[in-house]
Design a protein around this nucleic acid. Sequence first.
DNA 1: GGATGTTCACTGTG
DNA 2: CCACAGTGAACATC
Length: 693
Amino acid sequence: MEQVLGSDSVPSGPMDKSKVLTVKPLRCLVPIFPSQRDTTAPQTSQFASVPPTGPFPPGAAPFFPFFASNESQRQGTGANQGRSYPIPSPVPLNSFRTPASAAGNGDIGTSRRSSRNRVAADEDGYSQGDAYENSFGMYTEDGSDVVKKRKSRKKAKGRPAIAVSLSEVDIESLVNNLLKSFNLVEIDTFYQANSDKELVERVLIVYNLLRRKITQIDDSKEAVPGVARRPDLRSGTILMNKGARANVKKRIGTVPGIDVGDIFFFRMEMCLVGLHAPIMGGIDYLTVKVSADEEPVAVSIVSSGGYEDDGDDGDVLIYSGHGGVQRKDKQQMDQKLERGNLALEKSLHRANEVRVIRGVRDFASPTGKIYVYDGRYIIHESWIEKGKSGCNVFKYKLVRVAGQPEAYTVWKSIQQWKDGVTTRVGVILPDLTSGAESLPVCLVNDVDDEKGPAYFTYLPHLKYTKPFASSKSFLNCSCSDGCEPATNCPCVQKNGGYIPYTALGILLSHNSLIHECGPACLCPRTCRNRVSQAGLKIRLEVFKTKDKGWGLRSWDPIRAGAFICEYAGDVIDSSAVESDDNYIFDATRSFDQLEFVPIDDPVKVPFPLIISAKNGGNVGRFMNHSCSPNVYWQPILRENHDQSYLHVGFYAIKHIPPMQELTYSYGMVRTDKDGPRRKKCLCGSSKCRGYFY
DNA sequence: GGATGTTCACTGTG
DNA sequence: CCACAGTGAACATC
């Protein structure tokens, strides 16, 4: 009914609202002026409120010198300095980021080939395990003093307190190692304000590594009541204080390094990369100078679901303003035209773009949410409605700017495919595994008329004719309820005292050999330490790519670290490799250090495993190569008395949105002398080597 | 009165 | 359920 009000409020401006509201705005409403610019034009810094060189928000820049000295001081005393692993010393500080301004033409990434020279270093082996693991294994005492300390630290913002608790020292050195590995130690101020894809990705990956690691540590302690269990916030604060963040400068419109469709699993992630700054609030805005006056302008909103409604059109969003809820007693009251609400109002009149992030329920983790960046919207109208309690609520109608890649609508389509409401176009087979997997795997071709890949037998698991023999005999566990962290279960011990996975089956740390429970272990199939044995958890599809044959992608969003599938097939001897076999997985190849996996010693594969999936295999055989992959593999060992079964597990490097192709690096043949096996690479990445194995 | 430092309120989340 | 943190804006001090 109020729609009537809404429709005529467009031309008549804000007067309606001030009439309805007795509240006077915090800042006066200056006269409306037309959007002074075509909104499709790039909006780089028209409203820049922060000069590129500062002054900087407190908490970021001023602390760099401090941390730098802290860093060098720590060099000799850190918890793992005594270890023999080569410290990734001053890091390949590839002098890296000359201010992005200089690279105005966006020619990034061409100078990074040098990471290759690290390959030579790995050839003489190393002890297994990684620095992070080991540095933690030593201290698992309680952290009861941590709580108090964190409070008192708040005063001296960002200053690392004198080490009180051993585990805090550990976290400090873990963080420093991570930051060094990913070249996030002292980010150029301008680059920090105006970032790019590289920085965004590195920040996100470090955030997730840190968060998972802290989760793992928390997990291994017995629950201390009162200790905050929010690794998401804790790791976020740490990175904030260290300045390891991107796009600090707020901006209207597109954020460098963030693509429409990108997904996030925590509010903190969006905060760290400058997509949406408020850690809780739904509306982000900045203040712009208008002659002598200032006014707020909205930059992004998070719609956490609930009230969007408006039927099936995924390009329209009805958004409610904030406020109107008494915090203490949860009393409802009228919303006021201030802060975010005022900013949205201003954006409406200026016809500014507003980024929209849609929160959707995460079915893999019912308590969690996934945030989908759905691109830029324009506010078309606003009005006031009476809420349930009879109080005034602001409503804004946003319409998606045309010409952007699909994002949220993809999610809607997938949901409909799953529900059987609509059918996927181009389906050749609804389940190419014929029921061999716990979930169906669709075979789809919507690009040409090829009817499917060459014949093969679907094998859900790796087939061994003979396991690797071991000289020693392994203990099996007897955890009848499944293995738990912080127990003396032999399988947990083999993993350095931890279970390598979270309760959700997310891999907790990179670069370690994963010891899963073996056939003789008495724990159930559902044990947390049998993630790769539990079958598919992600709804995958095999699809025809434009130019790379068949490929693999997912209907479900995938979290960084999630297990995707193993590489199934027949374990063969190196002498049995046929030259026309395009489905070889060869763990003895050399694998370039992945850019987004910590620069640590890579895991040594304990046995020379070669798998052929030519005649038989699983979905893993369809995953294509890429020089900048979103998936990587790790060896998994399952032991059984004196036998070892080595498996290859695929895990997500980063969060992967639905329908994005899954790729990993096939590696290089070590003795390659420009041999005949080289294949032209079509990955299309800016870092493409041009060929693979 | 401009610059800088401090405190507080506001915002849902996991 | 409830502690949690970034930010803007008001307030305080230089």
